[in-house]
Design a binder for these strands. Sequence first.
DNA 1: CCATTGGCTGGGAGCGCTCCCGCGGCGAGT
DNA 2: ACTCGCCGCGGGAGCGCTCCCAGCCAATGG
Lengths: 316, 316
Amino acid sequence: MKRPTITDIAREAGVSKGAVSYALNGRPGVSEATRQRITEIARELGWAPSSTARALSGGRTGATGLVLDRTLEVFVPALLDGFEGELLLRVVPGRDAAVAIYRRWRAERKVDGVLLTEPGYAAELVRIGLPAVVLGGPGGVPGVPSVLVDDVTGALEALEYLAALGHRRVVRIAGAAVFADPAARKRAFTTATTGLPHPGTVHPEPSADAIRRVLAARPRPTALLCDTDDLAVAALAAARELGLAVPRDLSVVSWDDTPLCRLVRPALTAIRRPLAELGALAASVLHDVLAGERADDVCASRPRLITRGSTGPANS
Amino acid sequence: MKRPTITDIAREAGVSKGAVSYALNGRPGVSEATRQRITEIARELGWAPSSTARALSGGRTGATGLVLDRTLEVFVPALLDGFEGELLLRVVPGRDAAVAIYRRWRAERKVDGVLLTEPGYAAELVRIGLPAVVLGGPGGVPGVPSVLVDDVTGALEALEYLAALGHRRVVRIAGAAVFADPAARKRAFTTATTGLPHPGTVHPEPSADAIRRVLAARPRPTALLCDTDDLAVAALAAARELGLAVPRDLSVVSWDDTPLCRLVRPALTAIRRPLAELGALAASVLHDVLAGERADDVCASRPRLITRGSTGPANS
DNA sequence: CCATTGGCTGGGAGCGCTCCCGCGGCGAGT
DNA sequence: ACTCGCCGCGGGAGCGCTCCCAGCCAATGG
């Protein structure tokens, strides 16, 4: 009942361990006939490579690390969906704890590389010497490529849609958007709204209070573009408290389209970002980095606007 | 710049590898003086144990596996919060894929054990030969202990609270609650409501349609106890569509208290389960199982009722 | 004073795999 | 026909750690 090793296979096949290793890894050094035979024996012995032995010998663990801040919870499944391979996950309370984990992972050779959920860590990771890929953030640190979502076209599409509905006073509620470049969003929003008679403004505070204040302004905005789904839900709540009907008096567009958007009433129109694709891209970029190839920033396909009940024609 | 190994430490300290190993692992066999010296040298050399070498030699990887179904997304952070150590995470589309992952993890010695999010896998895991712990579900499979949340007292507290508010017609909306034993919840609900003039009923279908149908019944229930936060949000939406004001015409109590409960309006009264504690318990129980000790089911501390705006006095 | 005990320690054999080195054997070149 | 070169494979040395075993020395009892 003991687990078979390549030594067992070698004995069974009458060859050496080395030959078995080459054969099973599909690399040159053995004849096709021998390879076939070895593969067959391995199959019927039920052999599977020991990840630990591989890791020791090869210096690679095959796992990628992800240190999570609590705010990201909702996005992990979507991200992992596209991510091939295992993720070693760790939830930490703050920045120092995160850096400590990165250090330890590096020292203990626990992971080959890590995914960063915010660009602020990139420089630190370079210092630690752990390969890393930034999700969604702006690049800039040499050796730490980013995988990006094109928030600019996403924002443009949403704003064009709102413009077509007659909205002229659009306010963006900026917030702690994950996998996003705040500067890019801001730029996209301001350039897209410069043609409007009442240029859209950006509100920097993500609190519910801020939303109430925005809605109390005169003339009142007819549409909100919220950086996160949470903010959009908070906006719905604020509108309700102020006696504003959505979408009659106010249209709300959200960013991300987590399941939450379909649960609330009215259901939220949202800019859906291809998060699964982001995960897949991150995996392949990290792979390139580990292979020693120079990896550049890559961009996922454009977001799509999902229209639901929270948007409608402007009414003033 | 090479990473120090215990051999380096041994050379530096003038002792053998074996002595270093014993000293750094705090086990008997070396004198206290030698241990001190070795520890000091290890520290100044910046030594950290190689997890891969440990895993190869010791047969333990130190990692726990968690295969995720997409429905659980929201709970992972809370769970991990209490879980000490790393979790190897994998999202899969269905049951077969999950079993395949378990098999592979076992064959490749990727993880020491796994956390199960539903009891249905327990028997399979025994067959595969992977140590496992069931989160929240009913036990029953020998060798696979469960960590439980006391849903009975949670349900009782909520129902007592509703009774005190004058509610006599309470309906439970059953759903796909995670980390829970459906049978226990049902039992708790039926026993707690047998004293009421209109005994509470359990509706087995978790859809929004079902909720609408429940609310269309005459006499209409005055309170709903929803198995999940999603269902509670759906209930709020359904109530709204039917012109029912919450909490004036209908009180809604939710189970779990994810952040969602505070975002919607009215904010949801919820039975908060100690999920972080569940994670911590799971870690320690799994530890016991791995140590070969017989582990029994354990129960986390009782849930707490968090009252918010979705509940109020009965109005009919 | 010598044998026995017991605490410390050095040596070394694995754990399962990768990869380098080198050796036979075969076909091709002159 | 002889040599050269290359292909296919065997042998073995690590990777860093754990843990068993035997040897050493001091303390102790007879």
